[in-house]
Write a protein that binds this DNA or RNA. Structure first.
Length: 281
DNA sequence: GGCCAGGCGCGTA
DNA sequence: TACGCGCATGGC
């Protein structure tokens, strides 16, 4: 059990904002698995309480995952002052980017294409239950599994994966797992590469296009200028920035790379959240 | 019952 | 290079 002091941190918004897919809301707290450990998170104002099943004395892994040492205010200060951006920030101050394990992030987003977030969560839960390893959980809590290593998925068959509701994404995930197992792409080696080179590596993997590559670069590696453009972001850019004309995707991508500053990835997450929640509650 | 979902890969012009 | 389409599945 530990308590972190935080400022400007909206845990619930962050864990449900479509970047991670494994968190469950149970009795007023968030249960999940990070770095192979069961962990339960609960926020009360400026404190985040964390509980694990087994004793922990070094919490670096969780601080890193939650990005507790990021000064969000400084990042928000770099955003453009235009109305859509400021409006997005006002709608959810405290939204954060997590730093996930790259393989889990990559596999999750291969599963994500033309799926709603709820369905992505279902697929990943099935994958973990079937191929992951059980994690120690306190008495009385739901069982949870690790996210299966690519070497494990590489041994599966396409129909095994289709049974996890992957549909046409099954061969993509399988081929990518096998490529990683065979060392054709080394996810560890992407750290520290220039953005373009890291993206080129990811694009070699089946089922990975620019959008999914950018999700992995942003959520798994922390490349601050990776800016995933999905249907929601496309809608945001067209409605909020180019309402009068029909702008094509390449132009939107160029705009996204030049307009939002050195932390454009964060800006993207705010726009995404704003578009998904505006009009509701 | 049609439409759409944090897309990608491939065929055709 | 630039479109258009098929691909599974489920919720509304």
């Amino acid at each position: 059990m530990v308590e972190f002091l935080v400022e400007n941190y909206d845990l619930a918004a962050t864990l449900t904002s479509g970047q991670a897919f494994r968190w469950r809301w149970v009795d007023g707290a968030w249960e999940g698995a990070v770095a192979g450990r069961w962990v339960c998170l609960r926020q009360e104002k400026n404190r985040i309480h964390a509980q694990t099943a087994l004793p922990v004395d070094d919490w670096t892994w969780l601080r890193h995952y939650l990005q507790l040492d990021v000064n969000l205010g400084k990042i928000l200060d770099t955003f453009p002052m235009d109305e859509p951006m400021q409006c997005s920030v006002r709608s959810c101050a405290g939204l954060r980017l997590l730093r996930q394990e790259p393989w889990e992030c990559l596999a999750s987003f291969i599963c994500s294409s033309t799926k709603r977030i709820v369905q992505i969560q279902q697929i990943i839960a099935l994958l973990c239950r079937r191929f992951g390893d059980p994690v120690t959980v306190p008495h009385g809590h739901e069982p949870i599994h690790t996210f299966p290593h690519y070497a494990k998925l590489a041994e599966a068959s396409e129909s095994d994966l289709r049974e996890c509701k992957l549909g046409f994404r099954a061969p993509y995930l399988l081929k990518t797992a096998r490529k990683l197992r065979d060392g054709e792409v080394d996810l560890k080696a992407l750290r520290g590469l220039p953005l373009e080179e890291a993206r080129a590596q990811l694009l070699q993997l089946p089922g990975v296009g620019i959008k999914i590559a950018d999700c992995v670069l942003l959520f798994g590696y922390g490349f601050q200028q990776a800016f995933p453009v999905d249907v929601w972001i496309m809608k945001a850019l067209r409605q909020l920035y180019f309402p009068k004309r029909r702008v094509k995707l390449p132009r939107l991508r160029h705009f996204s790379q030049t307009h939002f500053g050195p932390h454009s990835g964060y800006a993207q997450q705010y726009l995404f959240h704003y578009m998904r929640t505006k009009g509701k509650a």
